[in-house]
Design a protein around this nucleic acid. Sequence first.
DNA 1: TGCGCAGTGCTCCCGCTTTG
DNA 2: CAAAGCGGGAGCACTGCGCA
Length: 267
Amino acid sequence: MEANNNAGCYASFSQMANQDTQRHLTQRDLEILLALDRCPLTVAQVLKLSQVFAPGQGFQSLRSCHERLQKMRQAGWIRSWPYATTGSGSSPEYYKTTLLGFRILYGDDAIPPTKRHFSHVSAANHHHTFCLAEFIVHTIVSAHRHDIRMAHFYRENTMRLDIDGEILLPDCAFEFHTPAGRQFNFVVEIDSGTERIRSDKDTDSWKRKIRLYDALQDQSYPNRFRVLIVSTRSRDRVHSILKFASEQARNPGRSLFYGVQLGDYLK
DNA sequence: TGCGCAGTGCTCCCGCTTTG
DNA sequence: CAAAGCGGGAGCACTGCGCA
């Protein structure tokens, strides 16, 4: 895996001082910008993620976290839009970096990955985006607790896997590095239950994904990766996909696909 | 900068009333 | 009688203000 959006490539503070925002950019602000560059986050998700910030940098309350995000928004580093809500009450807002925020992270000449990188998420993708963010935040926080470092994170649709002329775009991908020096590679597929499992016609079917990931693992040997299937729906859905994957696998002794229901994972 | 409190705005839920 | 409309209550995100 190659890194194209990793930390450690911040613009200099003198460059930032040239911005007309007249706001003090802290190390924590950079952590927030980096987090929002991975995926859109709500205030609650930023609060949870702040547990992995440098010691003493985490937020103690939703109130203070929200206040800081408002200041960053006023400075023009980030933007927010409301999520379409499905429960009672008003909908939470999700935050993304602006071009200014992006260039604070990666330098004045940094080129955004896509045109839509700084624009709002279409309503049809709200559920998917929120669930992906929940998974990412929980994964980073959990890994941090076990002293496992995440590296080379690829945000949604930035990793393009070309397998025998067919393309796969995982929802995200990353590496885990353990204190013992071991490396684990993961790609993540969020399943909202909208894709057919066994269809030959549906270009987004699980049958196609399973076939391509299986072929990719053959090509990648001895480098190994695992596919994490996170269902936002039911456990039955996870079991159905994993059962089908085991039926389709060319090497049944190889564990390539791992599945979990998002609610279970977050618990 | 962090936090508490009180208030606003928004949305969903639910029961009641009105309408066709 | 069922569907539509309406209004109050509840829950949640967010805001303004003051204090430490």
